Amino acid sequence: MKKLINDPADVVGEALLGLAAAHGDRLRVDHDNRVVFRKDAPVAGKVGLVSGGGSGHEPMHGGFVGLGMLDAACAGEVFTSPVPDQIIAATRGVDGGAGVLHIVKNYTGDVMNFEMAAEMVSAETGIDVVAVITDDDVAVQDSLFTAGRRGVGVTVLLEKIAGAAAEQGRPLAEVAEIARTVNAQGRSMGVALTSCTVPAAGKPTFELGDDEMELGIGIHGEPGRRRIPLAPAKEIAALLVDQIVADLPFRAGDPVIAFVNGMGGTPLLELYVMYHEVAHLLGKAGITIARSLVGNYITSLEMAGCSVTLLKVDDELVRLWDAPVNTPGLRWGA
């Protein structure tokens, strides 16, 4: 194992120290609870957005805290759900009187701990808490960490779009409904070319031969649909796009946000090759790309590979996507 770390047991805490040092102009970190807050939280009269999950997926979620996106993010241990006490601290810390939206990826531990925290904080404080669960991965049903489909790339798009709605002062019910719409209209699928190494484990999560790839991989290194021979980018793009388009389905004339996400170990050079192939396939299908996003946004440590996410949008969702955002991981118009 070669990593730029000190003690594997300290990696999450020390990363949060670095995040706070690098982005103290827009963030503050509760190091006791390992919660990243928007610097001006709570914002009076604004719906607070809280998300979180295991560390190792950076910039998600802590890198998406700031104006126009999340108000707080809870950092669990690497690939481990945050605990209820963290989520309670985050929820209390962002309550500006308009309620709090929990954005939860569909992993069993995440769902259970967010539910428990919401019940406890509502009972103790009366804060109105609504949860929206993302489950956009078309690859597998009931994976190692889930009951149902996994929450993956759509989570990033949802946090941005719902964050914009909350920034506009919309009420909790409306922000939650926008979030549900985004989840319902988005689909994702990924592929891994290599495994990743959890610092505490010190060895790769799984083994892949030099001529193999794992189709439909999860962000924690969970197995996908099948292991197949390594293929050129155009064939990989077709394998992913065909499954995504068939699942919703997406039809000719549908405008989409097309998101090609790196898993942490794939250079932008290759991600743009993949985006070119995805755009070509969508063009052939008559699907219009309204907006695009390319880069490492929801990663799996140093895993090589990528995921593709397509989100059906209308003019309203595009306006919310275009609205100003100022976070360490995503920034425009602000």
Rank of each mutant, 00 (worst) to 15 (best):
I5H: 02
I5S: 00
D10G: 04
D10E: 15
G13V: 04
A15D: 04
A21L: 09
D25Q: 13
R26G: 13
L27C: 11
D30I: 13
V35N: 07
V35T: 13
V36R: 00
V36N: 05
R38L: 07
K39A: 14
D40V: 12
D40H: 10
A41S: 15
V43W: 05
A44F: 01
G45E: 09
K46N: 06
V47E: 00
G48H: 07
G48E: 02
G53V: 05
G56K: 03
H57I: 09
G66C: 11
L67S: 14
M69G: 10
E77C: 01
E77R: 10
T80W: 00
V83P: 01
Q86D: 06
Q86I: 05
I87L: 12
I87T: 02
A90V: 02
A90T: 03
T91L: 02
R92G: 12
R92E: 13
G97M: 15
G99P: 00
L101M: 11
V104I: 11
T108G: 08
E115I: 03
A118R: 00
E119M: 10
E119T: 08
V121M: 08
A123M: 11
I133D: 08
I133P: 10
D135N: 13
D135A: 15
V138F: 06
Q141A: 03
L144Y: 09
V152Y: 01
V152Q: 01
V156I: 15
L157G: 07
L157A: 12
L158R: 04
A165P: 10
A166P: 11
A166S: 12
A166H: 04
Q168L: 14
G169H: 06
G169K: 08
R170S: 05
E174K: 14
V175P: 06
A176P: 13
A176C: 06
E177W: 05
T181A: 09
T181Q: 13
T181H: 06
V182K: 07
N183W: 01
A184L: 10
Q185A: 13
M189W: 02
V198G: 00
P199T: 05
A201V: 13
A201E: 11
G202T: 04
G209N: 09
G209P: 12
D210N: 14
D211C: 11
M213Y: 03
G216W: 00
G216S: 03
I219K: 02
H220S: 10
P223Y: 02
R226C: 05
I228Y: 06
I228A: 10
L230F: 05
A233Y: 03
A233K: 00
K234R: 11
I236S: 01
A238R: 15
L239E: 12
L240G: 04
Q243M: 07
I244F: 06
A252K: 09
D254V: 04
V256R: 12
F259Y: 14
M263N: 08
M263T: 14
G264D: 09
T266H: 09
L269S: 09
L271P: 13
M274S: 06
M274A: 15
E277L: 07
V278F: 02
L281W: 01
I287T: 10
I287N: 07
R291G: 10
R291N: 14
S292A: 15
S292N: 14
L293E: 09
N296I: 02
I298N: 02
M303D: 07
L310N: 10
K312W: 01
V318T: 13
R319K: 14
R319W: 02
D322Y: 07
A323K: 12
P328H: 09
G333K: 12
G333S: 15
